[in-house]
Nucleic acid binder design. Structure first.
Lengths: 332, 332
DNA sequence: TTGTAGGCGTTATCAA
DNA sequence: TTGATAACGCCTACAA
């Protein structure tokens, strides 16, 4: 803060009025070339930077956006956050970050705290109730990631295609009994993924997919689930996401159960850490970078209704085969 | 934005003036209890939220802070970011996030972009030149993480103690030839860590610590380094950080070199992913959560000079022994 | 205890 | 093309 320099300082230095400085620098209105040069030079010398808050007060546009995520330490959200902020920067926006720590009340509070100082909000995998989303949607422009709501713009990965690729891969290897290790009941993605399984599994010959409980969407959740998976008699586990997959992997290793010889394990998303372990985790890649970028693009379109809307980006998912899956062992 | 409700709307609804509304809600000045209740009720009904940008314009305080990090996808920075935003929320601040993507120019640009809309800035492991830090420091309140500069508040983990714990552990196991796998030359932490090694290693009997090149501070860097480490003849590798350690681990596994039987590997920091692999990575834990929290506390102290300063938190590091280290094998 | 007036830094409107 | 003036939403003297 200190006593930062304002338009008036620049105006005095350049020997013009404050309004002329504003015009010269924002470049909207015509200014005499010579005057503008003088103003620009003065601004440069003084190191003038406009106060965006003040500008926003009158233009009604802050050039800030907000991003709300459930957990920044989850590499899934870290990747999305990184791409959101990168794209926002390129589009001339600064971004407020808000980590709800998976808590619904915090999530809502953060949204309210931010809504007044941003032009728009991106809600990533929001856990909040639909009614709250609807209420908030009236306050500010909004884009949803991994959730849909009538009238709101959404960016979602194709869960059905993810499931199809995963089942296809395991079925092709010869697996006929697969355990799906579920994520949080309230997670929209988890619901979609299980629904897709129920719809798609019957399209494969002789394939049985059982659902194993509901677990926290992280490493610990996977560790908890592993023993139940083993007991289920399935020859392959499909985890709700990579972190759960890694948890399963770790627990199986501890028990001396070999992967993939004794049991195949698949994750979903291909977050960065999936390559860190050995055996590497077979997974279906979600285009997280594109998700973040696309969400920003959509939001920018929403906030600037005049501009030509950019074509919606498609978000291809892709099977990534590593060492954690193989043909099932014959019964010994 | 839409046409959001202002103090005037509340004033009209409550049958008072705008200034009374301001007073009633901010609670600084005395207001008749009955009037205040009426105002508060009216505000609640209308869902009034003050425009913080407008408030900041006059109070000179935005209640926003900014955080600049080199890479959000690095779990080290993700953890710090999470704790920064968590503590900031508790202290009543919203946080701008800025990912420089390890680029010096971007880093500087982000700092400038943010400096006018925040009360203070936290620079985490800044890569920028010292002269730039000095220049920026004049613009806004600032706290540095993992870097020191005269006159500026810093939060740093005790690199010397980290090194001491690591060497003590490996030496106690019987290792006499250790390879330190260096991080980026320009990294302040890397410089401090190597300097600490040169100072501390001689205090152990018969201990030789060699430096193995300079590598990217991530998984790929570790993979690149692994073969050189093996060739060095060292019985243990101490990596610049956990990600490098994991890279080494992975490459060794690929080559069929057993850890810890053939070679012990240590990381530094104990980022979340260190527990994901097996064998688990022995490491020295940096209190990342405390680092973020402490940085916010220091910044808040700086921004509110009147308040009683909170006592500086100490940041204990701690050895975490997992399975990637053991006594060196006898020569076979 | 409350209302009126002024101003924070900027841009938009209107004359000149 | 430029300069005064008003206004954005809010807060804080000052006056009532």
């Amino acid at each position: 803060m200190a006593t930062s320099i304002t338009v008036h300082d620049v105006a005095k230095a350049a020997g013009v009025s404050a309004s002329t400085v504003s015009r010269a620098l924002s470049g909207n209105t015509a200014v005499a070339a010579e005057t503008r040069d003088r103003v620009v030079e003065a601004a440069r010398q003084l190191g003038y930077r406009p106060n965006l808050a003040a500008r926003g007060l009158i233009t009604g546009t802050t050039h800030n956006i907000g991003l709300v995520v459930p957990d920044l330490e989850n590499p899934y959200f870290a990747s999305i956050t990184k791409s959101v902020q990168s794209r926002a920067l390129a589009a001339g926006y600064s971004v407020f970050i808000a980590d709800s720590d998976e808590d619904i009340r915090t999530e809502l509070e953060l949204v309210h705290q931010l809504s007044k100082q941003v032009d728009g909000l991106i809600l990533c995998s929001p856990r909040m109730a639909a009614s709250d989303i609807a209420a908030v949607a009236g306050q500010t422009m909004m884009v949803l990631i991994n959730r849909e709501w009538e009238g709101l713009t959404s960016v979602v990965v194709d869960d059905a295609e993810i499931i199809r690729l995963a089942l296809e891969h395991l079925h092709a290897l010869g697996h006929r009994h697969i355990a799906y290790v579920g994520g949080p009941e309230k997670s929209w993605s988890n619901q979609k993924r299980w629904a897709a399984i129920e719809r798609i599994a019957p399209t494969f010959d002789d394939l049985e997919v059982g659902k194993v409980g509901s677990y926290a969407p992280n490493f610990d959740g996977g560790q908890s689930a592993a023993d139940v998976v083993v007991a289920s008699g399935a020859t392959a586990a499909l985890a709700y996401n990579d972190l759960v997959g890694l948890g399963i992997l770790a627990r199986l290793t501890t028990r001396g159960i070999r992967v993939p010889e004794d049991l195949s394990v698949m994750g979903i998303d291909d977050v960065n850490v999936a390559t860190l372990v050995s055996p590497g985790l077979t997974t279906v890649r979600s285009p997280l970078k594109k998700v973040g970028r696309s969400a920003v693009n959509s939001l920018v379109d929403l906030m600037n209704p005049t501009d030509r809307h950019s074509a919606p980006e498609d978000l291809p998912v892709q099977l990534v085969v590593r060492q954690s899956t193989s043909v099932p062992q014959q019964h010994s």
